[in-house]
Amino acid sequence: MSDARVAVRKTYKLFIGGKFPRSESGRSYIAQDANVALASRKDVRDAVVAARAAVKGWSGATAYNRGQILYRVAEMLEGRRDQFIGLGLPTAEVDEAIDRWVWYAGWSDKISQVYGGANPVAGPYFNLSSPEPTGVVGLVTPPSFLGLVSVIAPAIVTGNTVVALAAHDAPLAAVTLAEVLATSDLPGGVVNILTGDPAETAPWLAAHMDVNAIDLAGVTDQTLATSLEEAAAGNLKRVIRPSASTPSWSDDPGLTRMTAFLETKTVWHPKGI
């Protein structure tokens, strides 16, 4: 008999409504040498229900509070840095991903000032435009871990909730990120993560009538991207198309991934005595 300790392996499950269920379909597949849950259409729907239920609390939280929680995600990720490196991710990428959470955390209470403001209308009226979250956002995420963080963080920092489809061949970092999110005071349902085959699940997400927007960052098949965009038109989802060239997630992210999922509300009121 060997003295070597038998390791406790991890079961990689879905992340829905703050819990870690297996796929309701009972299916799994092998990716990165592990059994991973193969999400179904029903899992997509359950995740959308969870995301919708979380909208009121998360969009109603103060920007300060959301910023604190995103910063907490960075703290938790920093503590688990080695775990992500152990998944085979380059150290530099893990560090950039941590820093990206910090960057977006700071945007929570600044985006309204940059992207909204008072409008000098020609009349005796108070007039103010402010950005508000769109609602539930579907994310087809890229295989890169930094890419995954770079599509989740901008969607949620402004108060949206998300259903993220992890890349088929690189799901382990996504599930491990879910463990980080679950311990960061992020309310359940704000981020839901489904592993499996996005080619199977994304069409249900794109056609779902209770999803308000979709980011197709991780779609590389042009035919699939086109059909997802067509399905998204059914309820006029806001769509971020896949980038025309291979995206470099290390670049300055800019504001567009936040502003694409914001609605501008303009409030008028007469001035008088």
Binding site: N119, P120, V121, G123, N127, S129, T264, T266, W268
Partner: peptide
Amino acid sequence: KFDPTSPF
């Protein structure tokens, strides 16, 4: 009410 400075 409408105004060119006011997003719609």
